[in-house]
């Protein structure tokens, strides 16, 4: 297939995944900020903006964050290149450029979302309606993911779409952990008041893993177990280990189909092996933050290798 087509498919998924992730961040932060009614919740929104990688730009434009300004910036701002609105617009732009490579179902989902988008404004999540908006976004992501899964031929087009989802997802999970790593550190957890508990729950919620945690560990929230779940657990679809299992599988499918391997396959396997051999104790010993920083840069390197090998 055309390199540009593959590139568009890869980024289409990345933007859809990012929109979904932003919706979850907004939801989790909103819930947390409401719990902290005593304070104004601004530190929670600060942390949400940092997680989304747009804190500096936000402060430059709007000053100190409030729930309202931060939410609008993350969800609907035209000025924020990675707001949900812009993510969906970019996803649709990518989709339109390669609509022949998409199934009708995928195209109609993404195009339908884009047609709805102009109707979304501040009033869409004023009052208690935030969750309706975030549900809408999550639903779109689910439908695009699902329609792709159900309708696409299992060929290179499908594999590039999947790679986009997993590379972005791994980045998102690592980033949210990295922003929150301080509340997962052992010295904090020994304090372990109700506030920490809510923070921990918020992390899990933002990756859709609160229920999963209970099923896997069958005990109360423990910070190292949360890290274990999100980093090393193969069963959790948003864990780094699971993302890499998928990345490796899909890259292998590509190399089998094309009869050629390259940098991206080698890099991805290296990252996967490191995740397979790690234990959560060792991760904390070497430093959670250091571990995550390295992972984020390794993941970017895999993305770069995919681009160089196939998409440029």
């Amino acid at each position: 297939m055309l390199s540009r087509t593959a590139d568009n498919l890869f980024w289409l998924s990345r933007y859809v995944e990012r929109a979904d992730y932003l919706a979850r961040i907004i939801e989790a932060t909103n819930r947390l900020a409401m719990l902290l009614a005593a304070g104004d919740g601004s530190s929670e929104w600060t942390s949400a903006l940092v997680t989304a990688g747009c804190y500096d730009a936000f402060v430059a434009a709007h000053g100190a964050p409030t729930a309202e300004t931060a939410m609008e910036y993350l969800a609907l701002s035209e000025d924020n290149p990675s707001s949900i609105r812009r993510c969906l617009e970019t996803a649709r732009f990518n989709a339109r450029a390669v609509r022949t490579a998409l199934t009708v179902e995928m195209w109609e989902t993404i195009n339908g979302a884009w047609l709805e988008l102009p109707k979304m404004d501040r009033s869409s999540f004023a009052g208690g309606r935030m969750s309706r908006f975030t549900d809408w976004v999550k639903d779109i992501a689910l439908r695009i993911d699902g329609s792709g899964h159900r309708t696409m031929l299992r060929n290179d087009a499908y594999w590039f779409t999947r790679l986009g989802f997993y590379v972005e997802r791994a980045d998102n999970t690592a980033r949210i952990l990295d922003v929150k790593y301080h509340i997962l550190l052992p010295e904090v957890s020994s304090v372990g008041g109700g506030l920490d508990y809510s923070q921990w729950a918020a992390i899990l919620r933002s990756v859709n893993a609160l229920t999963a945690y209970r099923w896997v560990y069958r005990e109360g929230l423990r910070p190292w177990l949360i890290a274990d779940l999100l980093i090393l657990n193969q069963e959790l679809p948003r864990s780094l280990a699971s993302c890499y299992a998928n990345i490796v599988t899909h890259l292998d499918s590509l190399s089998n189909a094309y009869g050629r391997q390259g940098k991206s396959q080698r890099f991805a396997r290296t990252v996967q092996t490191a995740l397979q051999n790690a234990t959560i104790e060792r991760v904390f010993q070497t430093g959670l933050h250091e571990f995550l920083t390295r992972f984020i840069s390794d993941n970017a390197r895999v993305g770069g290798a995919i681009t160089e090998q196939y998409l440029a």
């Binding site: 297939m1 055309l2 390199s3 540009r4 593959a6 290179d156 590039f160 590509l254 094309y258 050629r260 196939y310 998409l311 440029a312």
Partner: peptide, 12 residues
């Protein structure tokens, strides 16, 4: 274009 021949860039 290479050697007066048209090519397209593909993933392969």
């Amino acid at each position: 274009i290479r050697d007066d021949q048209v090519y397209m860039r593909t993933t392969e």
